[in-house]
Design a protein around this nucleic acid. Sequence first.
DNA 1: CTGAAAGCGCTTACAG
DNA 2: CTGAAAGCGCTTACAG
Lengths: 335, 335
Amino acid sequence: MTAQEIAQKAGVFRGTVDRALHGRGGVNPETAERIRRIAREAGYTPSRAGRALVSREPVPIGVILSSRGNPFFDDVRQGMLDAREDYADFPVELRFRALRGYRETEQLTALRTLTDGDVRGVALTPVNSPAVAEAIGRLAARDVPVVTVNTDVEGSARRLYVGCDDDAAGRTAGKLMGLLTGGAGHALVVVGSRAVLGHMKRLRGFSEAAGLEYPRLTVATVENGDDDDESFRAVKEALAAHPDIDCVYFAAAGAVGGVKACRGRVAPDRIILSDDIAAHRELILQGSAAAAICQQPRQQGYRAMKALLREVLIGQRPETDTLFTRSEIKLRYNL
Amino acid sequence: MTAQEIAQKAGVFRGTVDRALHGRGGVNPETAERIRRIAREAGYTPSRAGRALVSREPVPIGVILSSRGNPFFDDVRQGMLDAREDYADFPVELRFRALRGYRETEQLTALRTLTDGDVRGVALTPVNSPAVAEAIGRLAARDVPVVTVNTDVEGSARRLYVGCDDDAAGRTAGKLMGLLTGGAGHALVVVGSRAVLGHMKRLRGFSEAAGLEYPRLTVATVENGDDDDESFRAVKEALAAHPDIDCVYFAAAGAVGGVKACRGRVAPDRIILSDDIAAHRELILQGSAAAAICQQPRQQGYRAMKALLREVLIGQRPETDTLFTRSEIKLRYNL
DNA sequence: CTGAAAGCGCTTACAG
DNA sequence: CTGAAAGCGCTTACAG
């Protein structure tokens, strides 16, 4: 089915079909409705090739990542470039903004800048705040789809979330720890902050799996502010306070400092990290930790950008509103 | 850079450029060479959109999988369909042939049938034999690229192999077993056949990793012919003969029968399977085995078909001749 | 052997 | 508000 055939059935010219179907205005409302109905009934989807061939102006897509100083996002970014490759026949311009951390005002500013440059779609690692949700809503109202990556924002009109299932990651870590300890041990779970939803989900998942399958595995918790120095101190302290602790799960960042504090006190084969960033790979390769629970950052970037481009370039919306990446367990030999 | 611009530089018509660049014949050799040189120097790649728009005849692609009666290949097939989706703007016809097992003559017949139907590219799970390698060579000579999936064939002109790194899979299993047993145990490694290269690689990898890191972990081996009944008997026998065996790695198929033989004798938390086919998932979910080392079958199909279509449809050859998928460790919570 | 044209399905000025 | 045409980059008959 082509636009030409729709035009014939509707008794108009194919230019008019195009205008009606894409809401470019300047079409009699009744004619437009008739055209849309015919297209719907015929199950018409515009040909990707025809569309690509005629696209001259690059389509701007905004990307806001909290990636400054955080190597984890290198892979996310690479995944986005992979997806862009899949649409190499379209002129697309990815506009990256790298922010440091998750500050609301900075993110709102970045969003506004992109919006002024009238991007046609946005991928971002949102700060979980009402103001950000609202900004996303304004974009959605202008038919600019927003996809959240790696972390989500509550109550927003974002089109899709692509990221980790923190609950599953925590449970996987819990089960693995049960296996590493023969089902009996005293675990320390190190989170960045109890205020971060994802960290709490991992902690809860860990406790659940451990409690369910390994009743003789106990769980203590400590915060490290996602910082290595802080992590060293906090873990050192926790190990001193609880002499029975014999295994550690780092649910977030700060593992390098924390692992240092474990030296000579907790067996490396009972230490689990999160994410396989370079520093963690090194810890694993040198035998200072057994495993890392990873969240497929490249897939996160790929899926998010693929969905965004699919919608913006060929008008196909994602079928779901959440896409979880798998929790991968990496040891020295499958890094 | 467009074909039109090449034509101008070469002082010919753009139809001639097309014929010269794609070797369709009917072009003066000197003119053709001049055109090719100009195109090369200009780094010309034909536009995917232009090409897609003009393609009417479906491009036939042959797929031969040893998938009959083997659910593992459901995912491989799905991955191939995913890749086909990425080239939805081209008319492509995937011609699947599902064979039972790896019999040379049957595979050669299937290859010949496809060849007669003049496919433009082939993906297959090859039997590792000179005759198959030769058949691949004949296709290559006719400019029909062949990609091997999941298993490879020695000394052939295949364009690319996409599959498991059996060595890494075995090492990962060995390391994991060391972790599960606290570094001291007596392992039984169950392979299908010592004649299968992949199985031996996994066994060797397992022993290497175990020997390197866990000198107190010993390794015994048994064959099960990839069959569940045979597996039950062989494992039962091995466990009786070696009373000290306390952990088992199933490096290939036949785990369902083998696990049955372990009941009450080897702790489920010390049993590792290979691949997350439905039967294995069930074993893991019901607590009869701890983990499965998986080889990303969907990725195998996806990468293989993507590379094939990329070459056949837009003329870009793969940059490498081997693509390993990762060995994923799956527990109950990250299946 | 090569020129000249038509056409794939779409979008976009331009007329009216 | 809508018709009529041009053009994106390519391939493919068709002439000569």
